[in-house]
Design a protein around this nucleic acid. Structure first.
Lengths: 240, 240
DNA sequence: GAGTGGTCTAGACCACAAT
DNA sequence: TTGTGGTCTAGACCACTCG
């Protein structure tokens, strides 16, 4: 036995999947749904809100509720993040990196612990937004111990952290990544122009150098409205 | 300017982070919050619901709303899924695989397309739940073309698909994985005993053999209540 | 001005858990 | 019986969009 809002959710979702409601077209308004299902507006609203959170719809205040275009999303390959610029160009699209923050700060206890330093050591705080064809795709928040990268400039950050690292004769030996689904806070939501309460894909990672020092602690937020995130693993001989 | 439900959400979240509300202890009830913040119950409720979706709280009908224990989650390494049983034993915990479904079916058009076969070809439909210490951790839904694995039995599935594959002289050449955050449908929710509207981590993958035929299409749902999902990448020489 | 979504209220009835 | 969360109602006011 479905509840009323589940009934409405099912009805709308069905329409989306079957193509009765096409991408970027309106679904019935909250008032229309309330009337046609003989429920209160709050109940109809709950159904639509759930489908927004699940990523099927998006709302525009004053206008209506629309079907999200999930079919025509482009693909981004996760292991190729390092070569973001090059990879995007290869698809004929235009990449751009916006450096939103580049500061020298004292880390919180949590950050210091992750980087294996103390709260008295300096760290770079870096926020970057990766765009493709002027659309924000990835938000990156990075903490880097200053002692490893003493002469880092905003110019390096505008391009590639890893190019800088290589130029300094360092080499990343290991990366530890954690995969986390989240509903982002408002700051992330604004930077990636996401819908409220939309689930998002997050990776937290630590890069470890050849001497076991930690080069960076980075949080990556991926905008799933326009892109799908894939990874290709080739058999190297022993994994499978 | 925060809305009222955001104000309450912030208050509770703060209490959780600061430790005023301890793991598996109650937060104030909806009625208590409604009174102390001078709002209607629906408004207080919305704040708690949001925190459930975000993974900070869980609710038990008739009892109350509780703080989820996120600190003491164990770690599972993603690339080691193949050796699930062995890896879990190594930590001193007890792994178990429940085969919930093992059937020979005709695939839908969507599934057939993903497997590179027709809707007239047979496929195995397999559902498995991976448990650690009797707690469901991973739900796995697999479609396998029968022509590649003609003599597959439930016994093989109880153990390892990949052991079977090796025994047949095959070898997985490549895996294509897609990472997706989702709010699972009720079936998945029940299998993994998840909270309603809780965001979950999902991987869809295709395994490709040396002759480019597709061995499997698999959907994996990871229960993030009890586990964190990490991946370690070692530098093989050219990736970074 | 009419329609939309965003927020909020003050009730109500229910199923469930604990005492 | 009391308290909890789950669902739902029938209103209300607001900010926004568009004609």
């Amino acid at each position: 036995m479905l509840t009323k809002h589940e009934e409405i959710e099912k009805f709308i979702l069905n329409g989306v999947i079957k193509g009765n409601y096409k991408p970027d077209e309106k679904v019935p308004s909250e008032n229309q749904l309330a009337e046609s299902f003989s429920v209160s507006r709050m109940t109809a609203r709950k159904a639509l809100d759930t489908l927004v959170t699940k990523g099927y719809l998006y709302k525009i205040k004053g206008k209506g509720t629309y079907v999200k275009d999930r079919e025509n999303r482009d693909i981004i390959y996760l292991d190729e993040m390092i070569g973001f610029t090059k990879r995007v160009r290869r698809t004929g699209k235009v990449p751009r990196t916006d450096v939103k923050a580049f500061e020298l700060i004292k880390p919180s206890e949590d950050i210091a612990a992750r980087l294996g330093i103390t709260t008295k050591d300096d760290v770079y705080y870096i926020e970057r937004i990766r765009n493709i064809d002027n659309e924000p795709v990835i938000l990156e928040v990075t903490y880097m111990p200053a002692y490893i990268s003493p002469d880092l400039t905003i110019d390096h950050v505008q391009k590639s952290k890893y190019d800088y690292l290589r130029a300094k004769g360092h080499r990343i030996e290991e990366m530890v990544k954690e995969y986390i689904p989240v509903i982002p806070e408002s700051k992330v939501r604004e930077d990636l122009s996401l819908d409220k309460n939309m689930t998002v894909f997050k990776i937290e990672l630590i890069s470890i150098l050849e001497d076991r020092s930690i080069f960076e602690y980075t949080k990556l937020y991926y905008n799933q409205n326009k892109y799908r995130f894939l990874q290709i693993t080739k058999n190297t001989g022993k994994s499978f």
